[in-house]
């Protein structure tokens, strides 16, 4: 039995790691296919220590955005800015092994991101961060010493299962800036007239949606087959 052969924490981390890889793939980063379907056997061979416990420091990885994603995150060219640069770049994913994560670890992590010139980062922690660290994170995009794209923090427990694979979760697709403008012109709307979605929504967190972007939600419909709605991230 697998459950007896491997320690519970290793199995747990294997699932977390797989979900993280799937999440990066869904966001549009380039991920090796094998990583997402890695078996527990393989995972334990590569990332377990001798005592059967997972070695978190070996799990950290970085990934590059794909061409498609770069295009999606590039603003439409305007008069002011005829050659816009994409608002996305290399991301660093770190699995923190500390029991308690506070401002100290968060600051070290942000310094590491800036030092390694990563655009953004994701930290996966064992337990939820302290309140002050969350407050620091909320203001981190305005703090000059943080990375450009900001830092996201996930708790391992939230990544045990991939929520987007649940049958009740509809498909969410981020619109690029150009698509958003087309949508607004097509329906003669201001963006404030769209329905909204919070950026703290689980799926919005999963996709790393930023404030002001528009997401297309495609649901199954009994009468129409498919039904698309659009939501503005606040």
């Amino acid at each position: 039995m697998d459950g007896e052969k491997y320690s519970a924490s290793l199995i747990r981390l294997w699932r977390v790691w797989r979900t993280t890889k799937e999440m990066m793939n869904d966001r549009g980063y380039m991920i090796v296919e094998d990583d997402m379907s890695m078996s527990l056997d393989e995972f334990s061979r590569r990332y377990a220590r001798e005592d059967g416990e997972p070695d978190r420091s070996r799990l950290n990885f970085s990934c590059q955005p794909s061409e498609e994603m770069l295009a999606k995150y590039t603003d439409a060219p305007s008069k002011k800015n005829p050659n816009p640069t994409p608002n996305i770049g290399t991301i660093w994913v770190e699995f923190n092994a500390d029991e308690n994560v506070g401002m100290k670890q968060l600051r070290e992590y942000m310094a590491h991101l800036v030092h390694g010139s990563f655009h953004s980062g994701i930290m996966v922690t064992v337990k939820p961060m302290t309140g002050m660290a969350i407050r620091l994170l909320r203001g981190a995009t305005s703090i000059t010493d943080g990375p450009k794209g900001g830092v996201e923090v996930f708790v391992e427990q939230d990544l045990l299962v991939n929520i987007t694979k649940h049958e009740l979760v509809p498909k969410h697709v981020l619109l690029s800036d150009e698509e958003k403008q087309q949508l607004l012109v097509r329906y003669r709307l201001k963006q404030t007239q769209l329905p909204r979605i919070q950026s703290t929504d689980p799926v919005a967190k999963y996709l790393g949606l930023r404030r002001g972007s528009v997401v297309k939600i495609i649901r199954k419909s009994e009468t129409a087959g498919r039904y698309a709605s659009y939501r503005w991230v606040i």
Partner: peptide, 13 residues
């Protein structure tokens, strides 16, 4: 509560 948070942060360090 903020003071408690400070103590917590110091303990983590």
């Amino acid at each position: 509560a903020d003071y408690d948070a400070l103590i917590e942060e110091r303990n983590i360090a």
